[in-house]
Design a protein around this nucleic acid. Structure first.
Lengths: 208, 208
DNA sequence: GCCTCATGTGAACGGCGTTCAAAAAATGCC
DNA sequence: GGCATTTTTTGAACGCCGTTCACATGAGGC
């Protein structure tokens, strides 16, 4: 053991785990979740096949860790976009919502495989969602709920949360189907315009 | 060979293929696409393992055939719903669109695993979508485009087609995320109301 | 130096989709 | 019917997969 000085076992394990998640991320980004092979990963980070299971209980959890990273990068992208748009008037709110939706599309386009695995992951039977994953998601919804507070000041927090989820899901639907070449969908070059139209239309729906 | 009289080879092959797709459909409906195992299927329809590949080139195509059935049943469900709603006035059109969207949700709920495999199927690299599959999809969009013609008489056919795709994708997004227990989403009991709200809001967006 | 114990290893296991040489059945011909 | 030829069916075998576990390896305390 002991290749670097002052390196405890747990520190090395953490470094190996980081390398593993790095490798997993690269492989998913290149070849999708189907490209996550135990033997390839072990070879890439220089440990024996069985050693993987000292770092991670199974490959599903590895994909989950990659997804967590992706979700955080998505959050940063949305934050960066939101910060570029003022939020004083209702018009500002609508514009920011449009910008966020389009940033979502841009992120999905630019991180296609990683973004897809966010939703392809179906955990085995027991299906207990780790709480950190839930928190990651809640943080995303905040980006939508915030402008909604300007647009719908009279609504309750819970009501706006529901609206935020609905709006997100609708935009998400356009993006999923639009980026899926197998389906007859909104053509890729029209996606931005259609998303903008949908967001503006639903926002107009608030006032009537 | 020859167990039933006047049964040609090709007729028996067709019967076996039907039995195979039946079995595949049952297994997907029960356990999702992960439950589609070559050995189980062969045993269930009473042929040898290798015999499967006389009926179907691989399991992906089998899943595709099941998906075709599902798509057709979905089409029938939407047709039945559409037929129950008049289409004389713009108000009628909006109401019908809402009804169709909710019928889509109901179908997804009632055929969860089969409906999911419609979208989980990612065909290998070459990615040529069989034309019959494309036609199935086009027929579905017609159900949305038809009311849109009443709502947007001045628009071109192509423009309405684009709107139909966008509207479908948005509703689809709410349904996918809403029926996915892994994600924080619109709670199931609120799905109907949220879908109705979205459809009505976007329809109001047409006139302004 | 030596014992102890945590850590790392890779052969092995069970399961998967798919293939293919060989067996079996059907068909054609006398 | 009997034999040769072709078609169809069979299941053992292949290669790959995720995961496990008996064993080897090396570090830390004495």
């Amino acid at each position: 053991m002991m290749e670097a000085r002052h390196t405890s076992t747990s520190e090395r394990r953490q470094a190996q785990l980081d390398a593993l998640v790095d490798a997993a991320e690269r492989r998913i980004a290149t070849g999708g979740i189907k490209a996550l092979k135990a033997r390839d990963l072990a070879a890439e980070i220089g440990i024996a096949l069985g050693g993987l299971y000292n770092l991670v209980p199974d490959l599903d959890e590895l994909a989950l860790r990659v997804s967590s990273r992706t979700l955080n990068r998505l959050g940063e992208a949305l934050t960066a976009t939101a910060d570029r748009w003022p939020l004083a008037t209702p018009d500002d709110a609508v514009n920011r919502l449009v910008a966020i939706a389009q940033a979502y599309l841009a992120f999905a386009r630019g991180n296609l495989s990683l973004w897809r695995t966010l939703f392809e992951l179906r955990l085995a039977g027991d299906a207990v969602l780790p709480e950190w994953a839930a928190n990651d998601q809640l943080r995303l919804f905040h980006h939508i709920a915030e402008p909604l507070a300007v647009l719908l000041p009279q609504q309750t927090e819970a009501g706006r949360g529901l609206t935020a989820r609905t709006l997100f899901a609708a935009v998400h639907g356009i993006v999923v189907i639009g980026l899926e070449d197998r389906l007859i969908a909104v053509p890729p070059q029209a996606l931005n315009a259609q998303i903008e139209w949908l967001v503006r239309a639903t926002c107009r729906g608030f006032s009537t």
